[in-house]
């Protein structure tokens, strides 16, 4: 039963990764990147490596989003 749950998570991860290509809004793409690393953290637990999952949760979910949003804020033209 839990294998089907992980299959659903892999489908969510793949769908998010494909959706990043077609999203034209950069801020929405950054949010979808967060979801990809979110699901990757659970899949690291499935292959029995919780320390890598903790690192992925810290770097991928928090730090990458902050850095991307700061970069968008610095490079966007002020209106």
């Amino acid at each position: 039963m839990i294998n089907y749950f992980f299959l659903l998570l892999v489908i969510v991860m793949l769908g998010s990764a494909i959706a990043i290509i077609f999203i034209r809004n950069l801020l929405a793409a950054v949010i979808v990147v967060t979801v990809v690393s979110l699901v990757a953290s659970i899949l690291f637990i499935f292959i029995a490596s919780p320390d890598v999952a903790i690192t992925e949760a810290t770097i991928g979910a928090a730090l990458t989003t902050v850095i991307f949003v700061l970069a968008l804020s610095r490079t966007k033209k002020k209106t």
């Binding site: 637990i45 949760a57 989003t65 949003v69």
Partner: peptide
């Protein structure tokens, strides 16, 4: 394996940072 609960603790502590950053933006 109860060692996997640590990942959930880290997620619950640090998960809100990205959302707060985007909301502030």
């Amino acid at each position: 394996r109860l060692i996997y609960m640590d990942v959930a603790i880290v997620y619950a502590v640090i998960g809100f940072v990205g959302v707060v950053t985007v909301a502030r933006y």
